[in-house]
Every structure is written in structure tokens, then in C-alpha cells.
């Protein structure tokens, strides 16, 4: 970045191996401990600490226990609203998914750059979101086929379809069903990437305009900076909403598997 004031807004997504683990491998596959892996571990740790605070199991909860119970209750209500009482058994999975993504999104937004560190949002990588999406989709398939067997295919033929339309509709529904893991994974990846790119581009405006001339710095630079404040708030909202959307869509798909139509 030092060279000629050129700021690459994509550099924040670069994965770098840490602690000299470049060539760590398992069965021929590289498993270097990267900055991305570090943030995955951090998200898991923060979530662990958060939930430990809710394990006091007191009848009259303190603030922390209340917060943890609020989150589990939120996921429970989401699942019961979408799936019904049978949805309770998915609380551990959807809670893990929601909180892991939420913390990943929020940790990636921390202004750690002020301390010379490089925050990283692993949910802005489709290798990560794709694994989560495939996991949710696999659970839907496993539950669907385990519960309904081949009858699960009736999901692709909505009630009251005219006989003539059964075959074309089956393929249309099949395609829309198969697209789900992609839309699930890409939505999160795109939303995170776009927000972070936007923030970096605006930050580049601030730096480059200030470097160009004081006048430009005061006009373009301060305008960009004010915009950044608003967009940072928006990004916090997007971080929460995207985690919620992921959990919500997972529970909607699980409803298809549990109850068909």
C-alpha cells in the first residue's frame, strides 16, 4: 500500500498462512493455519465464552445468562415458527450456525486496523460459506430422505398441479431446489464481500484525496468519511441480517424436509 498511494480494496480478502505453517498438510492437502483459520478459531472461542456465561443455570438469570438464553430462545422461536414443535431438535445446529456466522461477521468488522492488525472476515470467502451451505443442504437431504424416503420427491410437485404440468414443474422445482445451496452460500459471501469492498474503497478516497490536496481532502475526503460512518453502521446491520437470513433459510429448508408441503 505504501507504493504510490495505491490502495487495493481486495487485499483484505487475501489469505496468508500464519506462524510459518505454510506447508502444514494432511493426506497431501495443505491445511496451513491462515488468518482465515485464526478468525474461525476466534469466532468459535468468543462463542464458547459467550455460552459458558449462560451456563450458570440460575432460576433468576443474571444479565449474561439472560443474553445467552435470549439467543437460544430466539433460535427456538425461529424453528418453532417455521417447522413447528418438531423443529426443537434442530436448535443446536441452527444456533451454532447462526452464532458462528454472526460472530464471524462482527469480528471481521472490528476496527482492529487502528492497532495495526488485519481483521479478516472468513464469511467473505465462498470456500467457507459454501461448506456451511452444503452442510445445511446435506442435513435437509438426509432428513428428507430418512423421513419420507422416495416420497420426498413429491416436494417438487406442489399440490393441485394439473397432470400435464407435473413433468415440467418437477424439473423446474428440482432446479430451484438444487440452486438452494449455491444461493445460500453465495448470498452471505457476496453481502460480506460487497460491504467490505465498499468500506475500503471509501477509505481509499479519504486517504488519496487527502494526499492529493488539502482542499480535496476536506471536500471529498470528509464527505467519504461521513459516508463511511453510515455504511459501517449499515454493515453491522448486514452482518446480523445475513446471519439471520442464513439461519432462517436453513430452517425454511428444514421445514420442507420435515413436513414436505
Amino acid at each position: 500500500m505504501a507504493e504510490s498511494g495505491k490502495i487495493d480494496p481486495m487485499h483484505q480478502f487475501a489469505i496468508e498462512p500464519l506462524f510459518g505453517t505454510d506447508h502444514l498438510s494432511l493426506g497431501g492437502f495443505n491445511i496451513a493455519f491462515t488468518n482465515s483459520a485464526l478468525y474461525m478459531v476466534l469466532a468459535a472461542l468468543v462463542l464458547w465464552i459467550f455460552v459458558i456465561g449462560g451456563m450458570k443455570r440460575e432460576l433468576v438469570p443474571g444479565r449474561w445468562q439472560m443474553a445467552v438464553e435470549y439467543m437460544t430462545g430466539f433460535i427456538k422461536n425461529l424453528l418453532i415458527a417455521n417447522i413447528g414443535d418438531k423443529g426443537r431438535k434442530y436448535i443446536p445446529y441452527v444456533f451454532s450456525l447462526f452464532m458462528f456466522i454472526l460472530l464471524a461477521n462482527l469480528l471481521g468488522l472490528l476496527p482492529l486496523g487502528l492497532f495495526g492488525l488485519h481483521p479478516f472476515t472468513f464469511t467473505s470467502h465462498f470456500t467457507a460459506t459454501g461448506v456451511l451451505a452444503i452442510m445445511s443442504f446435506s442435513i435437509v437431504l438426509i432428513v428428507g430422505f430418512a423421513k419420507h424416503g422416495l416420497h420426498f420427491f413429491s416436494l417438487f410437485v406442489p399440490h393441485g398441479t394439473p397432470a400435464l404440468m407435473v413433468v415440467p414443474l418437477f424439473f423446474i422445482e428440482l432446479v430451484s431446489f438444487m440452486v438452494r445451496p449455491f444461493s445460500l452460500g453465495l448470498r452471505l459471501f457476496v453481502a460480506m464481500t460487497a460491504g467490505h469492498v465498499l468500506l475500503k474503497v471509501l477509505a481509499g478516497f479519504v486517504i488519496n484525496s487527502a494526499n492529493a490536496s488539502p482542499l480535496l481532502g476536506f471536500t471529498v475526503g470528509s464527505a467519504s468519511f461521513i459516508l463511511m460512518i453510515g455504511i459501517s453502521a449499515l454493515e453491522v446491520l448486514v452482518a446480523v441480517i445475513q446471519a439471520y437470513v442464513f439461519a432462517l433459510l436453513t430452517s425454511v429448508y428444514l421445514n420442507d424436509a420435515e413436513n414436505l408441503h
Partner: peptide, 24 residues
């Protein structure tokens, strides 16, 4: 491979230890 490995490891920890062990 590193992304998938570490994600499965960390999410596995989150799901099995936190999700299954503590959330219930």
C-alpha cells in the same frame, strides 16, 4: 483445503461442544 479443514474443525467444535453440549 485449508479453509475447508479449519472450518470443519472450528464449526465441528462449535456444533458438538457448544451446540450439542451446552445449548440444550
Amino acid at each position: 483445503s485449508s479453509q475447508i479443514f479449519w472450518l470443519l474443525l472450528t464449526f465441528g467444535f462449535v456444533f458438538f461442544v457448544i451446540g450439542l453440549g451446552m445449548v440444550p
